[in-house]
Amino acid sequence: MSESSATRLSVFKTYKLYVGGKFPRSESGRVYEVTDSKGKWLANAPLSSRKDARDAVVAARKAFGGWSGATAYNRGQILYRIAEMLEGRREQFVREVGEAEGLSKSKAGAVVDAAIDRWIWYAGWTDKIGQLVGGANPVAGPFFNLSTPEPTGVVTVLAPQDSSFLGLISVLAPVIATGNTAVVITSEKSPLPALSLGEVLATSDLPGGVVNILSGKAAEMGPHLASHQDVNAIDLAGAGAALAKELEIAAADNLKRVLRPQPVDDWSADPGTSRMTAFLETKTVWHPTGSLGAGGSSY
């Protein structure tokens, strides 16, 4: 960045966490070195602790009522706003993703474009998924019977290790689109695009605490989040087989919904709906309808 102006030293960014709508450092005071694909130093990222993870769960729980209670239309507008904000900072993310993943400028551009489009995809789903997976059930009796999807609650997301930006957005957006709140652990090796995403979320009308982003080691924080009694679900996308098994066992303690890691060759492929439905509950409400029969009115 600084080549063009020999007289001016560039300003580095201090990468910080995104928790409860604020940008704290790790309470542990720890950082770790983040390098590009060739080993060149890029930044010191916070090495989040289990206390940071617990704070993030508190923030996510606090945000859940408001976010899950917002209209689907409103959530769609906000997800769309995230895409707008990202589009405006496209160059920054092309650079960060290129450095993080060792991609050429054009390849990184394609990744960022796909990530922006992913937000658009899910922005459109917020007010449609309910009709897709819910509906009236034709029970054999005089009852109004309706099933509707509801968000599961606080979801821990272990973001993919390789696809640090498109992969992360591909697992995060479906979680919050339906009204869940999220605690995300970034790619350990390449956390910077994810941490910068926090700055986008903070300026997109997304209520603080809906998304909380922690950089660091999935293997260190994962067990605490998987066994946390106030977390309702966990997406293990970024966990290797051994860690995924360990965390699934821990998650059984309060019967968290678990999305096991699945091999993904191409994060830009059509994402379908399964990442949304994995974190939805179905609520079915019954009410008598009354009936107009020979015996007269009963309503």
């Binding site: 059930n137 034709p138 054999a140 009852f143 099933s147 609520k283 079915t284 019954w286 008598p288």
Partner: peptide, 26 residues
């Protein structure tokens, strides 16, 4: 809760999804 009965209770039907939130299973 996964099933809510209003002005009735313990109604079941094969067309009506049944199951719980939280530690009532998935």
């Amino acid at each position: 809760a996964g099933v809510i009965w209003a002005n009735t209770f313990n109604k079941f039907d094969p067309t009506s999804p049944f199951g719980g939130y939280k530690e009532s299973g998935f």
